[in-house]
Structure formats: structure tokens, C-alpha cells
Design a protein around this nucleic acid. Structure first.
Lengths: 248, 248
DNA sequence: CCGGACGCTGAGAGCGCACTGAGACTCCCG
DNA sequence: CGGGAGTCTCAGTGCGCTCTCAGCGTCCGG
């Protein structure tokens, strides 16, 4: 697998030997490793959300692994968590998974299995990794600068217009419903109506059309809007159809 | 956890005792269970994409669990897979995870742990559901694009028509009653009558027939509608599951 | 072979979806 | 205080979609 950025792994264990061993091993696999030794610190670090996987021991000073996981989920941090336990109790395992863990390892575990598990979790989230810039053909959405350009020419958008395009571009190739847009762009209070979405898509199209970027945002009647390009259509359409079928 | 539709689980094992036990247990947990007894049939059924989790034994007649998993991933089917093995070898486990498995259970496993694992996978992938694709022979329902095609040719459907086909395809191999369709497609208020369902199935058939795709949606008099293909019939029939077709 | 239940279909009324231009309102800046 | 940018509602339009109704075909039990 190729990573444009190295995956970041947080290793939480109270034994320094384990931390060191895991750090060395996972680094050798091309990952960036950060460690924490107790519950409160682990939680503090994990809440930054700046990790792709957390390796979490259950027996921890200060705050058990369960609690750390629970608090993480309660705060809305969805980083995949791999629980590690010395105990083999099946009930514990079920508990951990119910709290939102994504996997479970029983000590002593083999390093090969550990790496495979971590890789599996990384692979699953690879789509979300490091998406700082969204590109749809000639359209570039720079999320850091909140700037949009078409074929190198900057497109001046109002904040609302940008927000709508950001959501559509970040879900390129999938239809986004108006209600979803209302929720993500306007917030849960839904102060605006669906018509507002239509109006803003209209504004977007007007500006994009003026640059020659028509067809980027399509209407899928009865469902919502779809940001795509012919390129993307082909790439997504080619995947997985059994008999070499093509989308048009 | 609340589900708008019951999660659908595919259980693959060559021992009928295991299939039966799992089917009973998981059904009691509120899941819809479909079973397959050998590798080729499991693959055929899994490729429809109409499942939320696949429970896959490794030792299978015809095609090993590894191969089934490999072929599924190669065809772009991303349904979460939980591998089940009698062997405890760590290398096997790593192999399975590297092939794209999402979890690993070693026989004999406790049912509690199994259910926790399945639940964890269901929870995690509820967001991914939109990305998946349903296939019935030459028919492809692309949920991301809300697009339907037959043998590569797009089929133009109205929103209602699409919604009906989506439900039928996502329950491929199982009979769906008109009342269920009313509930899932029209909403709980049930503003429409059963005749509306008949009308829309009629519309669907007309359009599909025009593409040469007759027989995809069958009527099961007195029960409802069934989306299937001869292939799928054989695969499910061979496993000895009544898959709901005989419920009286 | 008959009758009733079930399922399918053609016709058509009307409503809802998507889009648009106009304009009210707020906020910010000079 | 005037002007401009930005946000959002409203009302109107065209068209496609939705769904009901009524009639007819089909299946099945007796």
C-alpha cells in the first residue's frame, strides 16, 4: 500500500518495554508512532483526533482502557481503536466491542497479527486520510485556504457557496441529498429550508458556468446533487462490474 | 441500536448444524440470516452485495474461505467479512486480515463474542452503506450514484421506481411483502395503498423488460415480490435455506 | 366449471420538484 | 448614514412524477 503521508499510530501501554517494542516494530512498518503511558494522558492525546489508529491497553493507571475508549466516543472522536488485554475473558471482549472498539487482541499476541490488524483498520479508513485538497478535474478546492479555482483561475465564492461546494466535492461520486446538505452546511437547527439549498446550488452553477465549468454539479432528480466529472464516472464505474461492463 | 431495516447477515459454513445454530441465534438478535454451504455458492450470493456482514468459515468445499474473500474484494464488494477458523495459526489470521477481512474468530468461539463482533461491524459500516453496489446478474444498482444499469446500459428510473428496486435488490433472494415495501419506500405514514406498490412494480418491469431484463422481479402470489436470478436461486436452494420463500 | 380473491394495467388529475428573479433583511465597512 | 455583500424567503413556472380508480386477466378452492 502507498501512503502519501505516513499513518499515525497512538500506542497506549503502562509498561515501557511494551511501548518501546511496539514503537520500534511499527516504525519499521512505515508508521509514525506516538506513545502514552497512562489513561488520562492517553485520553488527552487521543482527543486531538490526529491519529489513524489507537492501540489501547485495558489495564492502565488513572483511567482504564474502557473508560478512555468510552470518553473518546462520547467526545465524538471516531478514530479506530484496537483494544489490547491480558485477560482472555469473553465478556470483556464483548464489552469493549460494544463500547465502540474496532478490534481486540489478547496478550500475548503475535506481532504479525498485530500489524495485520492495524493495517486492516488503516486500509478501511484510507479514503479519509489526508484530504486537504479536493480535486475534480480542473476544479480544485483548497480546504486549508478555503479557496476554489478552475483550471488555475481563482473562483470567488461566498462562505455559504464555498461550504456547499466543499461538501459536494468531498463526497464526489456520491449523491448528496438536500437534507444532508442542510444538516452539514446549515447545522442541525435547520434554520433554512430546502429551497435555500437549491438557491445556493444555483449560485454555484452560475459562477462555475462562467468559468466554463458546467456539469460539475449535477442534479439527480428526487435524490439530490452529485459532484463528478466524466473521468470520475469512468473510474468508479469500472470498479467491480463482473463482465467488463461500462457506464455511460 | 435502532435499525430502520433489519441487518442482513450471510452465514457460510459447511456443517448444517453450525448454520442452523447461527441462524437461530442471530435471528433472535433481530437479524435476517441467509446461509450458504460451500465456496462457489457463498461467492455467488455474496457478490450480490446485499448483505451487511458475511460470516465466513475458512474450510469450505469447492472454494476456501480465503478464495471467496479474495474474489469478493477483487470484484469490488466491500461487505465486512468476519472470518471463522478452526485453526488457531497466527499466520492464517494475518493472511485473512491482509486479504481484506474485518475480523477473525477462532473456533470454538462464544456466541456472545460473535454477536459483539458482528454488531461492531454493523455499527462501523453503517456510514459506508451508501457506497455499496447491488448486483443481480447483469443488473447493477449503484447506490452512490442512484443509478441502475443492465448489462452496462443505464436504465432511467424515477425516484420512486428506484427506491422500490433498491429495496428489492437489497433483499435479493428473499420475498418482500407489499406492506414492507410500503413501510420502507413510502414511509410509516403509509400514505399510499398496496395497489401503488403493484403499479410501481409494473413500471419497473416494463422498463427492465425493455432492456431484456425480464424475470428479475418475480411475483410470489399471496406473499409479495422476489428479486433473484437463476444463479442465486440455485445457490440458495443448495444450502437448504428456505430464505423466507416458504414462510407460512 | 364457477366465483372470489389477487394481481396487473391504461388513463388521467393534480401535485410536488427543481429552478429562477425579485426583494427583504442583516451585517460590515468607510 | 449610505452602499455593498451575503443570506434567505417567496412566489411563479414548466414539467415530470405520483397515485387512484376502474376494469380486466389470472389463479385457486370447491
Amino acid at each position: 500500500m502507498l501512503w502519501d503521508v505516513r499513518p499515525r499510530v497512538l500506542v497506549v501501554d503502562d509498561e515501557i518495554g511494551v511501548r518501546r517494542a511496539l514503537k520500534r516494530g511499527l516504525s519499521a512498518e512505515g508508521m509514525e508512532v506516538v506513545t502514552a503511558a497512562d489513561g488520562p494522558n492517553a485520553l488527552r492525546v487521543a482527543l486531538t483526533g490526529a491519529f489513524d489508529v489507537v492501540l489501547l491497553d485495558i489495564m492502565l493507571p488513572g483511567l482504564s482502557g474502557y473508560r478512555v475508549l468510552q470518553r473518546m466516543r462520547a467526545e465524538g472522536v471516531r478514530t479506530p481503536v484496537l483494544m489490547v488485554s491480558a485477560k482472555d475473558g469473553e465478556v470483556d471482549q464483548a464489552d469493549g466491542l460494544d463500547l465502540g472498539a474496532d478490534g481486540y487482541l489478547v496478550k500475548p499476541f503475535s506481532f504479525v497479527v498485530l500489524v495485520a490488524q492495524v493495517r486492516a483498520l488503516l486500509r478501511r479508513n484510507s479514503a479519509d486520510l489526508a484530504r486537504r485538497r479536493l480535486k475534480l478535474g480542473e476544479l480544485v478546492v483548497d480546504r486549508a485556504l478555503r479557496e476554489v479555482s478552475w483550471a488555475g483561475e481563482p473562483v470567488s465564492l461566498s462562505p455559504r457557496e464555498y461550504a456547499v461546494l466543499d461538501v459536494l466535492a468531498s463526497r464526489a461520486g456520491s449523491v448528496v441529498t438536500k437534507d444532508e446538505l442542510l444538516r452539514t452546511v446549515w447545522g442541525d437547527e435547520q434554520a433554512a429550508t430546502r429551497n435555500a439549498v437549491e438557491v445556493y446550488v444555483g449560485y454555484l452553477r452560475r459562477k462555475l458556468d462562467a468559468m466554463g465549468a458546467g456539469e460539475v454539479v449535477r442534479t439527480v432528480r428526487g435524490h439530490g446533487y452529485l459532484a463528478s466529472t466524466p473521468d470520475l464516472d469512468a473510474a468508479l464505474g469500472a470498479a467491480g462490474t463482473s463482465a467488463g461492463t461500462r457506464r455511460r
